[in-house]
Amino acid sequence: MKHQQDLATYNFAYLDEQTKRMIRRAILKAIAIPGYQVPFASREMPMPYGWGTGGVQVTASVLGPDDTLKVIDQGADDTTNAVSIRAFFQKVANVAVTTQTGKATIIQTRHRIPEEPLSENQVLVYQVPIPEPLRFLEPRETETRKMHALEEYGLMHVKLYEDIARNGHIATTYAYPVKVMGRYVMDPSPTPKFDNPKMHQCAALQLFGAGREKRIYAIPPYTQVVSLDFEDHPFEVQAFDEPCALCAASGVYLDEVVLDDRGGRMFVCSDTDFCEKRRESGHVGAMSGQSGETVQ
C-alpha cells in the first residue's frame, strides 16, 4: 500500500509546526489579555473533542524535550483519560512524565487544581469544555462577545442572585465564574469552586484550552482572580465535615467513595499525589488500614 510507510510519521508533539505557531501566537495574546478568550483554529486531534483536545493542543505547543509532564483528571493521575493523554505525549514527544506535582514543569488537568501550591517554573494547562461563562445565560456567541466587549455582566449577577432567592445559596458549585484583573468574567473550567482561590495570585502560569469551542485563554502568574459574589452572600468554598480517611488531611477536596449499599462511605483526597505523599510521610487516616488499593 502506498501509504503504509508515511502514515506513521508525525511531528514532535504530534502537531505540525504551522499549527504550533498559530497556537503559540494565540497563547501570547491570551497572556496579554488575561481572561479574554482568544479564538484559534483548533485542529482535530487523535482523541475526541470534549476529551481534552484543547488542553492537549496547548500542551503540545508549549512542551519541549526538557519538560516533565503530569496529567491529572479529577485530581488523579491514574484515571483512564489522564493515563491515555499521558501515554499520548510519551509516544509523540517522548517526554518525561511524573505523578509528583512538585516535579512537573507542565501539568495538564481536568477538573482540579493540585492541592500543593504551584511554583513559578510551572505551567498549569486546563482542559475546558465550554469556555464561555455566559453561554448558559446566552447561547449565542455573537451576543456573548458583545457582552464581554461592553463589560456587560449584569446577567451573570442576576443569575447568581436568582439562585440565592430560590435556594438561599448560590447554586453554582463548579465552573464558578471569576473576574480576572477586574475586567473579564471567565470560566475557570469545571473545577469545583473549592479550587477557585488557588487561581488568585498563583505563582504558575495558567493556560486554558477549549478545542471544540476553539478558544484559548490565560491567567498570568500573580494576577488578581476574584470569584463573583455579593456583599450579603460572600463567596465561600465547600468544607468537608471529616478529614481524608486515608491521610487525615483536612482543608482539601475529598471524593466520596461508596463502600456498600447500606450507606457506608468514606471520604478520600481527590488529589492522589497529595494523599500518597502524606501517607508516605506517616499521616494515617481513620480508615487507612482497611482501604488498600481500590479494585477495578
Binding site: P48, Y49, G50, W51, T53, D73, Q74, G75, T79, N81, R110, H111, R112, P129, T173, Y174, A175, P190, T191, P192, R212, Y253, L254, D255, E256, S270
Partner: peptide, 15 residues
C-alpha cells in the same frame, strides 16, 4: 466527542 465525553469521570463536580 462532546456528547460522549459525559462518560468520562465527573465525580469531583458531582461531589
Amino acid at each position: 466527542g462532546f456528547v460522549e465525553h459525559l462518560k468520562l469521570p465527573h465525580y469531583v463536580d458531582f461531589q
